[in-house]
Design a protein around this nucleic acid. Structure first.
Length: 274
DNA sequence: CGCTCGGCCTGTGCGC
DNA sequence: TGCGCACAGGCCGAGC
């Protein structure tokens, strides 16, 4: 579900509310969401901990706590994380509830229950492989044209699968990959190695633009996504191809086509993207 | 090592 | 209207 712009929006909305707040106790409605440590230890460690700051890496959201602990949340497909003033107002899909010392709470809700939460001492963060192997993310200093170009040229497989690979670039998901390829006018099935320098350059700026726009619009609420205070984003109103099957391409009027690439529903304009 | 694909879960929405 | 079946914003691990 949430990709980089959505997780960033959740972080930005939660930050001003949660920093300095103390967790009083945690209620675990679905234990298997907690991947580490045990549910009992998770509750015991968090009780009385203060949130010092929030951070994000790719699609992971990190809560820094006092005494050098870090709680890491990954929302996967349908996870939601939002603050509720009235701690009796439970989400229909509530899985983990974090109660604060002032009668408010943070809810982790998740319809498909694929999301994951970890709690580690800060120096053990490397045990989350998805975090430690993640490539540079769009708009960051280490996401350079040289890296992008050199990596793409030596990869096997199609460009869509590569853009979805978090070890190559961190934070892109199905929506923003389809959108990036649309902006760059590249067919999702093209093999990465076949892209010309000009195409790679166009794709590089497209990825950065699409992610920047997504953040500016506070994420894409295609279906489930809500930010840290339960509000929808606006980027669904700016999508060029994702979810627009059968509708006209805004550049040329050709019907947007949906097909399967890299095991994912893939939207593109068959005229503009070749 | 790199790449592809199935599995994990459950709700929703589309087509018949 | 009701029902069944694909499909869903992601990632890990097995197998090649």
């Amino acid at each position: 579900m949430p990709e980089l712009p959505e997780v960033e929006s959740i972080k930005r909305t939660l930050e001003p509310i949660l920093i300095g707040r103390t967790i009083e106790h945690v209620e675990i409605l679905l234990p298997r969401i907690i991947k580490w440590p045990s549910p009992e230890a998770f509750q015991a460690i968090l009780a009385g901990k203060k949130i010092t700051f929030l951070s994000r890496r790719g699609k992971y959201l990190l809560f820094y706590l006092d005494e050098d602990y870090i709680m890491v949340v990954h929302l996967r497909m349908t996870g939601r994380l939002y603050y509720t003033e009235d701690n009796a107002k439970q989400d229909r899909f509530a899985r983990i509830l974090f109660f604060f010392d002032n009668g408010t709470m943070l809810q982790y809700a998740d319809a498909r229950t694929l999301g994951t939460i970890y709690l580690f001492p800060a120096n053990e963060l490397g045990r989350i492989t998805g975090l430690s192997t993640m490539g540079p993310e769009p708009l960051s200093p280490d996401f350079t044209m040289a890296y992008f170009k050199d990596s793409i040229k030596i990869r096997k497989g199609n460009i869509k699968a590569l853009l979805l690979n978090q070890r190559f670039v961190g934070g892109l998901g199905n929506i923003y990959v389809d959108e990036s390829l649309a902006v760059a006018e590249i067919n999702p099935l093209r093999s990465a190695a076949s892209l010309t320098d000009a195409e790679i350059e166009k794709l590089f700026s497209a990825v950065n633009k699409v992610i920047a726009d997504g953040i500016e619009h506070r994420g894409t609420s295609f279906r489930d996504y809500r930010d840290g205070i339960g509000k929808k984003g606006a980027h669904q109103n700016y999508l060029r191809v994702y979810g627009r099957k059968g509708q006209p391409c805004e550049k040329c009027g050709t019907s947007i086509v949906k097909m399967e690439v890299a095991g994912r529903g893939t939207h593109y304009c068959p005229n503009c993207q070749r």
